[in-house]
Each structure stands twice: as structure tokens, then as C-alpha cells.
Design a protein around this nucleic acid. Structure first.
Lengths: 179, 179
DNA sequence: TTAACATCTATCAACTTGATATATGTCGCC
DNA sequence: GGCGACATATATCAAGTTGATAGATGTTAA
């Protein structure tokens, strides 16, 4: 899925500026499965405007930078529908953390401990963020997506907890804590 | 993390061709958290050879296409260590499936049912693949990474199972199956 | 008042993706 | 034997994305 479809999808929920689209994608309730940067969003919005899938309205204020508010057209709504009926692509998951874990023997206990601690903190924060997002939202589709995120984050936290011993010393046999 | 570091990391476990590196990254036991294509691997290997972080040995066979076997140098091993001590980047997760779930009301029951069914099948396959990978491997770091994948895949399967009712008709209130 | 942070636009080099092309070997099957 | 499908192995490239940066202004807290 490309950023153009992503923009259409976010604009489906209401008009927005490029800045707001990025915020929704990268920091909002959906940020656990979406990502987009300015460098792809702004060109996408320009292209979508040209193709008349969105409209652009510039709000100009004296002595303030203007904002460009984009909104979905009927054509845009159809294009979104069409895109949603394309063959579904597989999820993408990339984890530098897991990559690092492969090289535990190169890392040293201190670095390893720090990484594991950081990861546990990150997961807890993510879980809080997701619970907040769930609380602020009663749209069924969104709840399904956020719930999925919560389920996976909880599983990750649980895995980290049960593997903490082997995690801080991966070179040691796992799951044989105290012999 | 860039593809150069990824190549160094894979070559740490032994020499390989570009083809094999891609296979390890995209289909091997680590493919649930790593990804790389020829278009990034081949340029990366060329650069790494120039920088003397890897060596290249060309195996020529008469009447067979030659293969270029790459191996880590001592400098390369140091470069890998250095890269592993860089600040850790956040995981990346992108899911077209979850994105789609946001627009359940645009989709129609049939398409939605098909997607959910497909996803359950994909998750089961992924779990099998991970269990196989776990069985073929007794390196502690790898087991930790694969175990993490198994834990999250199981959580996803479980979530799909408990939310199947609301999933095939997201426009309906979730978690109120049989009233 | 001053620094930090938020809103909003936009750009761009470097990198990655995804598809494709080329050549040959191997395996199963009728 | 021959045929098609798949595996090994190289490589390229347009199009798209990332990640960092720049610039202008507003707001908030110390």
C-alpha cells in the first residue's frame, strides 16, 4: 500500500492538513501499524489533488503561515474503495531489537541489560498509549485494530518477562535459570 | 539499520552469496523481523568489498554461471560490533490488514470474511514456519528471536479467534456475540 | 525573556522496493 | 526423452520512501 492510499484513508475520516495526516499516521491511535513522512505525504497530496481525488482549500491568515486543508472527493472515495479491494499485502515487521539479540555474544552484558531494560520500558509505554487510544475511540474497526495492537504488545511484554533471565545473558542456556 | 549492516550480520554466521543473504533475510528463520531485496543487497556488497569489510571470492565453473562468495574480514567484524552499539531504532510494523479493518463498513461482508479467513491461514502457516526454524536451530540468540516471533504470532491467532465474530461483521458491536 | 515545544509548509540525497531480465541446473512426470 | 516448474545466481532500474533538515510563526512554562 502506498502513501496515496494512506492519505485517502485518513481523509475518509475527515479533512486534514498534511501535517495532521502525518501526525495521525505516526503518533495517533493507528501509529502501531501505519507510518508516513512528510517527504512522501506532500508529494502524494499534490498528486491526489491533480487527479481530483481530493480537494485543497488554502486557509490564509495575515501574519500566520497558511494551512492547506485537504478533503476527499466522491472520486477519491471510489478510489479508496478500489484500493481496499486490491490483493492484500503481507504485514511488514522489522526489528532492530531482535536483530541485535542474534549477536548477544558480541554485545557484552552491560549493553545487553540496557537494551532489554529499554525495550521493556518502550513496550509498557506503547501499551499505555494504545489503551489511551482505545479509550478515546468507539469506532468498531478502529477498536479491532487497536485491540490487535494491545494483544500483541501484551504478548511481547509477557515474553520479555518470562525470558528476562535468558535475555540478560543470552550466551547462557535459556530456561534453566537457577541450577 | 541499513542493508550493509544486515549483510555484515548475516556474514558473521558464515560466508554467503548475495542470493543466500537474501534467502536468509526473506525466507529463513529470521524473516519475521528482517527483510532485504537484491536491489539493496548487491549494491551493499559492492560497497562493503570496496571498504574492505568483506572479501569476495568468485567461483567460476565452465558452462555455469559464476557465484560470488562473500566473507567477513576482521575490519568487517569490528564494523558490525560498532553498528550494534549504535542507538537502537524502534521496531517497524506496517499492516495493510489492520488498515483495511478500519474501513470494514466500505468493504462488504464477503470481502471481509475472505480477508479474515486468509489472515488466519497466513498466521497458522507463519507459526508452523517459526516452529520449524526453532527446531533447526540451537543458537541461544536465534532462539530468543524466534521465540519472540512465536509468542506474537500465537497472540495474533488467539486475538483473531476471540474476535472472529466481530471481525466478520465489524459494523456490529464487538464482544457481544450471542444476545 | 528566553528556551523549548507545537504547528505547518516543503525539499532532497540516499536508500529501498518490487518487478524484471538473463542464464543454467535439477527434479518430477507422462 | 522432453517438457514444465522451480531453484540457483547474477544484476538493473524506475518509482517510491526515509530521515533529516530548513524556515516561519505561535504557545507555553520556567
Amino acid at each position: 500500500m502506498n502513501v496515496r492510499t494512506l492519505c485517502l484513508g485518513i481523509l475518509y475520516f475527515g479533512e486534514a492538513t498534511g501535517y495532521e495526516i502525518r501526525k495521525t499516521a505516526s503518533e495517533g491511535g493507528f501509529s502501531h501499524f501505519i507510518e508516513a513522512n512528510y517527504g512522501s505525504i506532500y508529494p502524494a497530496l499534490t498528486k491526489l489533488t491533480q487527479d481530483e481525488l481530493v480537494t485543497m482549500r488554502e486557509e490564509v491568515f495575515s501574519g500566520k503561515p497558511s494551512r492547506k486543508v485537504y478533503a476527499l472527493t466522491d472520486q477519491g472515495r471510489e478510489a479508496l474503495k478500489a484500493a481496499l479491494n486490491e490483493p492484500l499485502r503481507a504485514d511488514i515487521f522489522k526489528s532492530e531489537f531482535l536483530f541485535l539479540s542474534l549477536y548477544a555474544d558480541l554485545l557484552g552484558t552491560e549493553r545487553l541489560t540496557e537494551i532489554m531494560k529499554q525495550r521493556r520500558a518502550d513496550l509498557r509505554n506503547e501499551l499505555t498509549r494504545l489503551h489511551d487510544a482505545m479509550g478515546q475511540c468507539d469506532h468498531p474497526g478502529s477498536n479491532f485494530a487497536i485491540g490487535y495492537g494491545i494483544a500483541l504488545t501484551e504478548a511481547a511484554i509477557s515474553y520479555m518477562a518470562t525470558h528476562a533471565a535468558s535475555a540478560s545473558g543470552l550466551q547462557v542456556e535459556p530456561a534453566r535459570a537457577a541450577e
